[in-house]
């Protein structure tokens, strides 16, 4: 009789230990995933900023009369380089996206530039990093969603409380980024 009670108690203890470790590890893993996906965004933002000087060098010779467009790109790039918080980073990046869009739109007027192999490569490369930034943000938000779901639902909520983990913020995409950039000729 005593043996049976012992076995049942042991099973109960093991069950709770199992659930506890499971939730603990899952919360930690999901949190790490958020940090990792933020690092991924950062890598892509840097990569993009690094491509800009190359682009400027290529474009300079052709676009002598588009000072404003070129200046906007440079300005957005330095904003990106000096950004500290994640949200600053994203805002500067959106500014850069807009500035680049105008640059590529204006480039349509320069057939010589459009035929330049280097320019074509840079254009592909920049749209690639732009997509990567968008997808790494999306993955960041997906990771935050997965984390928040476990932190806010029962029983994950109790474990999160014990571990002192709170829900994380998703990245907001500012209004400005949704607008079509103005192209002036």
């Amino acid at each position: 009789m005593l043996l049976w009670i012992g076995i049942i108690l042991l099973i109960i203890v093991l069950f709770f230990a199992f659930v506890f470790f499971g939730y603990y590890n899952r919360i930690i893993r999901l949190e790490n995933r958020i940090d990792n996906s933020w690092a991924q965004i950062d890598v892509q933002l840097r990569r993009r900023a690094d491509l800009i000087p190359n682009l400027m060098e290529t474009v300079k010779g052709y676009m002598k009369h588009e000072k404003e467009v070129l200046e906007n790109v440079t300005k957005a790039r330095s904003a990106l380089m000096s950004a500290k918080s994640p949200q600053d980073n994203i805002n500067a990046d959106n500014m850069l996206t807009g500035a680049l869009k105008s640059l590529f739109a204006v480039a349509e007027n320069y057939p010589d530039l459009k035929a330049n192999q280097n320019f074509l490569n840079l254009q592909d490369e920049l749209s690639n990093t732009e997509n990567k930034i968008a997808y790494s943000r999306q993955h960041f938000n997906d990771s935050v969603l997965a984390f928040n779901n476990i932190v806010e639902t029962i029983p994950g909520k109790w474990f999160a409380g014990m571990m002192n983990k709170k829900t994380r913020e998703m990245l907001q995409i500012p209004e400005a980024a949704r607008e079509v950039p103005q192209v002036k000729f």
């Binding site: 592909d124 990567k132 997906d142 990771s143």
Partner: peptide
């Protein structure tokens, strides 16, 4: 090759989206 480079770019993007 530009077309194949674009394919590589799309794969890179999707691997980031999927983590």
């Amino acid at each position: 090759n530009r077309d194949e480079k674009l394919l590589i770019n799309r794969v890179e993007e999707m691997s980031i989206a999927a983590g």
